[in-house]
Amino acid sequence: MSQAPSPLLEVRHLRVEFNTRRGTLVAIDDVSFAIAPGEVLGVVGESGAGKSITGTAIIGLLEPPGRIAAGEIRLEGERIDNLPAEAMRKIRGRRIGAIFQDPLTSLNPLYTVGRQITETIQTHLPMNAAEARARAVDLLKEVGIPAAERRIDHYPHQFSGGMRQRVVIALALCANPRLIIADEPTTALDVSIQAQIIQLLKRLGREHGTAVMLVTHDMGVIAETADRVAVMYAGRLAEIGPVQEVIHNPQHPYTAGLMGSIPAIGQEVERLPQIEGSMPRLDAIPKGCAFNPRCPKVFDRCREERPDLLPAGATRAACWLHAGKAVDADERR
């Protein structure tokens, strides 16, 4: 579509399974998307939709029994999902940075933030201790920590939540990665600080040319930050497209329901619209479209066949409502 010719990250037909005693759970099923250099891709969905697992799979930190069962992940054209552990370790932090949800627990309480930053720098870049420390101070300044020269020797518990998340961002930026996977980076923070952190992420992404995969359930954050947005439902992609299109002109009934349930300022409503029912559990995903039991526009085909992502307006949606165009596409092939 309108993507850059060579994407930075490309995920194709990713399938993540968890082998449990009660059978195999499919947490991610046939998910494909790409991120262009410097692009911010928002990933939204309810808890358990597979957003975080997608991010974890990309950085190669799925914990057993979770495993990538099919599909491939390419970083700058190179396949990374089947790399040996040591090669993948060198990519983490160096080429793909990560930010986690809770800044209060993301830092080791026993070491100064400076030690944690220089340790990461020296793992990836050929620098001696003094150079690494100078870079650490620069990074702390860049993420907006006042008196960085002094604060570098403080322990995590001496920082507030928002400040700690800034430190975490500095840690993710240590080796200038091309992609940052930010998993709910603002969820654990006060609302007033959320905006600051989002602005910081956005600015740093722009200045460093870093692409960001922003995992969140907060549509407001997505609207403000992302270039494109991917909507996930029950381990599958429901819709993906430019952020304004997805928000104002959603093509998948699930996306439409999601957008409808966001209250608009200045609009008096008796009751917020909500999507009836709840997302299916991974061991009870219905046949056909996973959303069909809750879909207001369901018809027979939805209960039988699973839809692929189909071109729908300016976005692509996994919904049979847009099947007409898909038939065209099939005929063209």
Partner: peptide
């Protein structure tokens, strides 16, 4: 814990 997960995500060696 999260900080161990995060340490791995930073690409630190297993030993570290």
């Amino acid at each position: 814990t999260d900080y161990i997960k995060f340490a791995r995500a930073r690409g630190l060696t297993n030993r570290a």
